[in-house]
Amino acid sequence: MASLFSLGSRPQALFRLASTANRSVCRRNFYLTAVVQQARDDDLFSSATPSETLVSDSSKSTTVPKAKLQDAAARREQQFNELVQYVTNRTGRKRAVKAGQVRQSAWLRLFQLANSSEQLEMVAEMFPRWRDSGKEFRSIHAEDFIRRCEELKCPTLALKVFGDHSKYGLGLSSLFAARHMLHSVYDKRPLSDSMTVAALFGVYKLPPVSSDLAACAMLYVACLKDNSSNARVVGKALYEELQNRVQDKPPVKAPQESTIRARYTEKPNIWLSDALKTIEKVHKKTGKEWRWIRYWTTEREWRPRNTFTPIQPATAAEHA
């Protein structure tokens, strides 16, 4: 079963498992009128209520930020549409506008401007035009696209795009991107989505999913959350691999400072830590062995499992 995760040679195995496993203040700033102010001066316990003018002033203070937000959203929408049009006119086999070049950064800008899953899908449908222009996407595009899919809660869009490279031309070209893609589906999506991502590790010639601690832990959690026979079979193989790797390596602690945790490069350690804590919790609940994870989930000092303190022979005084 362990060979199942050598995905470079057998990605189709996980695709079959995937198909069987699946079946988405206002600050109240009342400006008192002269009459109310006088009443307040005369009687500190006055029950006088603000006039209609005061209520109107208060409502104005709440609409100002809302108007600013609406203006910002409108500007963002306009920028998105203009950039979509710009890229569309200057890419493809037959360019409508031959002057000017589309930079690589234009795609990153489009990902950020997209404010809904529908807009991000619109951008994805433009990917073939980039390939038809003789251009290639880079790893940063894959990583940014997956991150935006997760933020806009449409991870299945990433599955569709990376599962059809012949159409979209955006490859899962880095282990970081593949890890992030797995993170976006393993906890809340069906097991089949996680298995599809695991299969894509092999399709794109990345290291097997079981060889990466973070990916292995997340996929194992996905199996624990599923109650199918396929999940138990895959989970058993992952469990053995994960346990060996965790016991043989010193723990990697996720950062605690919010400024460091926000760094994109720190995310894999955070994902690994969260997955291991979930595994420990589930194992405790189900009665499965969990102490092998404790070095990673607590502050206990780690020691390789093959080290031990030999028992010294008892002295004569002890025998006496």
Score class of each variant (00 low, 15 high):
C154K: 02
S61I: 14
M218D: 01
I293L: 15
F5M: 02
Y264E: 13
D187R: 15
R103E: 09
E82K: 12
N244L: 11
G134A: 14
L272P: 00
L69Y: 10
Q12K: 15
T315D: 05
V35R: 14
A74C: 06
V161T: 04
E257T: 01
D71L: 12
V246M: 02
Y86N: 12
T20C: 04
V35Q: 14
A13T: 14
S210E: 05
I279E: 00
K167R: 15
Q112Y: 04
Q112D: 12
E299W: 04
D193Q: 02
A2W: 05
F162N: 01
E143Y: 09
I140T: 12
E266D: 02
T20D: 07
L206D: 09
Q78F: 05
L172Y: 05
L44M: 06
V234Q: 03
R245C: 03
A217H: 12
P313A: 14
A13N: 14
R179S: 00
V233M: 10
T49P: 03
T53A: 12
P190I: 07
L108P: 00
A114W: 02
E136C: 09
T278P: 00
R189E: 10
K167T: 15
W271T: 01
R28V: 15
N306C: 07
E150I: 01
V55I: 07
A222M: 07
A39E: 15
V36R: 10
S58V: 12
P268S: 11
A34D: 13
K285N: 04
A317S: 09
L182M: 10
K68S: 11
D57I: 13
S133G: 10
P304H: 02
S166Q: 11
H319M: 14
L54H: 14
I270K: 07
Q104D: 11
S184E: 02
S173C: 06
A214V: 13
V203C: 04
K277A: 00
V203A: 05
A39N: 14
T63E: 13
F45R: 11
D71N: 09
R245D: 11
Q104A: 10
V64E: 08
E121D: 06
L113F: 03
K135P: 01
V282S: 07
V221I: 06
T196Q: 07
R138T: 15
M122P: 00
F80P: 02
R93V: 12
G134E: 12
N244H: 13
S105N: 08
S47L: 12
T297F: 06
W296G: 01
C154I: 04
S46R: 11
V233S: 08
Q256M: 14
R305Y: 09
P190C: 05
W290M: 01
L191H: 01
S6Y: 05
F308W: 13
